[in-house]
Design a protein around this nucleic acid. Structure first.
Lengths: 332, 332
DNA sequence: GCTATACATGAAAGCGCTTACATAATATTA
DNA sequence: TAATATTATGTAAGCGCTTTCATGTATAGC
């Protein structure tokens, strides 16, 4: 691999000049620039990014922590973030936190040790205090899908409560009154918010919430499976269920059908997230759209703007969900 | 951030000694080691990985190229690869090739410029010759899901042909004789192989293939949608269809149902890949298991063994598919 | 007790860049 | 044309480590 030194020799200029044409940050006479570019070309020279990083204390890498690497939700997120950074010549280093406090901290430590210029965090298990502390520690970061007091300018969030509200409102508008709710783990902020939205919609229609209509699931298929079983067992004349995410909705659909119910005629279901498989389901799932890709891109823009000083504006921090009407809700 | 120099001063030893205890590659007297460790601890020292890389010409990073970052297939792959490397203190840099020759080459160039110690490539559009040439260029790599002559020791592949064979054989054994085939793009090696397997199974049962029973799709939902329409139009008494991947199967299922067919009674369908949403489908999809996660891990092990000289054995390069029986095949 | 051997540590060069700062070349003005 | 302002280029000091080679110290052998 050719080095900058060889280029400088071949072009008959100094190291510094070559560096200047590489970085294009200091004026260089056109004739000189051409000489250098030709030399680089002839030698097939590519700057060594490690050496660049060491000298400039910029790694041009951004660390991402997500809960899981697989799963439709994070796939979309990562894909859009990667595209945004790649375009800017940056690269991402990805780590999985698995919604576990120890693993999330470990992931963050790992990324910091890799000298990331910034982090984008989708973490669920670490405390707000930990994040505030992290903020003091030097490495800048953006938080996805979570609002932390005093770090609000670096939080890119979905209005989860409104999403929960919309899901239930949609059912209400379609005439349902006995509505079950399968929640995510209530210690997760988004799960709590979505449920709160559900309650608000109920309240607006003057319906009181009953504990027999609530089931706390796990955001995974199994939660939907168990949730439907429990809900139907407790109250057989439920006409609709809102599931706090699409994975649970998938489990719910399967189980409800196995129990002999026709969907959506006997039971309407609405999901949350609008992950890519939700329209492979039968019936196609009515759900709440979570613009996760757009939110990832916005996090990337925040980094590009604040860390790499690109002149970007329109940094949006709160995103709004909306109903995606498909076939899993029956009007009564 | 504390540097190695400060640690050495606090511990009262030289830089070199600190480096030795960090890397644990040269004997250091126990008492000295303890002193150094204590100093590191007191300063909250973490080695600067960039400087380590520059000095040792090892970046401890592995580049991965996959076709897409989203999608169930690659999610599983990436997740398992990341876990394997993370455990070894390495990190992965991920780029998407989008099955496009230019983008694939660009991704590879990008990763090489990032000084990756090795690459794991799931590329479809670049030629075998390009890969052979790349092999000369210095950066070692492993190829996933593709067999390249003369690079065979670095190819981790699925026996795609056998998979195609199994899919069709399964249908044949269940009494089907009129079997449609929705293929992936035939220029992709795996698509071709799967189809060859299909033909072999047919031949074993003395059935001749008819062009009206073949449709070349795109490996995406749309291919399944159009494929079913075309196949059913050309030959209404087809009783079963094999789809060369699960995404197309999802499209096929939806479309068949929209055309009024009952599944699996009127039409049996088998997929390929066994991606995670295949059992959210209705009916739950019978498919061919593609052990993609295991293959990713094996690629990681190859790198760990050959590049980082871990003593590992059992590097398996050819994986075997198997039938996952679920509910989308009807016996006649 | 003295030399030979193994083992532990230190000194210093260098990995390939960036970037103050100094200097040289050129343009501007009086 | 000389003095001054501008712009282009060079010099050299790091960035924080690893690693070779040299040196020093403890142990063994005689």
């Amino acid at each position: 691999m050719a080095t900058i030194y060889e280029v400088s020799k071949l072009a008959g200029v100094s190291l510094a000049t070559v560096s200047r044409v590489i970085n294009n940050n200091t004026p260089v006479r056109e004739a000189t620039r051409v000489k250098v570019l030709e030399a680089m070309d002839k030698l097939g020279y590519h700057p060594n990014s490690i050496a660049q990083s060491l000298a400039s204390s910029r790694s041009n890498s951004i660390g991402i922590v997500v809960s899981e690497l697989n799963g439709p939700f994070f796939g979309t997120l990562l894909s859009d973030i990667e595209t945004a950074f790649r375009r800017a010549g940056k690269h991402v280093i990805i780590a999985a936190g698995h919604s576990d406090e120890r693993l999330e901290k470990e992931s963050i430590a790992f990324l910091k040790s890799r000298n990331c210029d910034a982090l984008i965090l989708h973490v669920e298990a670490v405390s707000d205090d930990y994040l505030r502390q992290l903020n003091e520690s030097g490495t800048p970061f953006v938080i996805l899908n979570r609002f932390v007091e005093s770090l609000s300018d670096r939080c890119v969030t979905l209005n989860n409560q409104h999403g929960g509200y919309l899901a239930t409102q949609h059912l209400l508008r379609n005439g349902h009154r006995k509505i079950g709710y399968i929640s995510g783990p209530m210690w997760k902020n988004d799960a709590e918010q979505r449920y709160l939205g559900h309650l608000r919609a109920l309240a607006e229609y003057g319906i009181e919430s009953k504990s027999s209509l609530f089931y706390e699931g796990d955001f995974h298929e199994l939660g939907g499976v168990k949730g439907v079983a429990a809900l139907l067992h407790a109250d057989a004349d439920i006409t609709a269920i809102v599931c706090a995410n699409d994975e649970m909705a998938a489990g719910a659909v399967t189980t409800a059908r196995e129990q002999g119910l026709r969907l959506p005629d006997d039971l309407s279901i609405v999901g949350f997230d609008n992950v890519n498989f939700s329209h492979y389901m039968y019936p196609k799932l009515t759900t709440i759209d979570y613009p996760i890709g757009g939110m990832g891109v916005m996090a990337a823009r925040w980094v590009l703007k604040h860390i790499y000083h690109q002149k970007l504006d329109n940094i949006q921090t709160v995103f709004e969900p909306r109903v995606i009407e498909r076939d899993s809700v029956h009007s009564i």
